[in-house]
Amino acid sequence: MSELSELYQEVILDHNKRPRNFHVPDGANRHVEGFNPLCGDHFTIYLRVEGDLIRDAGFQGAGCAISKASASLMTDSIKGRTLAEADRLFAQFHGMVTAPGDEVPDLDALGKLAVFAGVREFPMRVKCASLAWHALHAAIQQTGESVTTE
C-alpha cells in the first residue's frame, strides 16, 4: 500500500489530471515522438530552441498517468534551461528511476522531479516514467528519429 502511494503521489495524480504545457508551443522548432509499443503510450515532445536555450516546451499525446505526469513535469522543468543542462537532467532523472533499490539516489538536484523516485519499486513502470525524457534526449541530440522504450 505504501509503495503504491509512493508511486501515485498527489503531484503525479494532479499532473495526470491537469497536464501542464499540453499543447504545441508557439514557434516550436524541434519535436520528437516517443512510443511505448507495449502499452500504447504515445507522446510528441515539442521544443522552441533559441541558440543554446530551451525557450518553451510542450507535449501532445496519450498514455498512462505516470508517463503523462512525467511529460508534464519534464516540460515544466526544462523551460529556460540550456540544452546541456536539460540533457544533464535527463541523465539524473534516468539514474533516479533505474537506481538499484539499495542505492539512495541524489534527489536534491532533481527538485520536484523527485516525486518519481517511487517508480524504482515498479520495474515495469520505469519505461512509462522515462518515455518523455528519452524523446527529449533525442530532440537535444537531434538524432532525427522517433524513440521507443523497447
Binding site: E3, L4, Y8, C39, G63, C64, I66, M124
Partner: peptide, 29 residues
C-alpha cells in the same frame, strides 16, 4: 479517466494478476 496500465499496477498490488495493453491485437484497439 484511468489508463489500463495504471489499473494493472494497482490491482497487482492487491495480488490480482491481469494483463493490460493491446493484447497483440492492435487493429482491434
Amino acid at each position: 479517466g484511468v489508463h489500463p496500465h495504471d489499473i494493472g499496477t494497482i490491482v497487482d498490488q492487491e495480488g490480482v494478476a491481469i494483463r493490460t495493453g493491446h493484447h497483440c491485437a492492435q487493429p482491434v484497439m
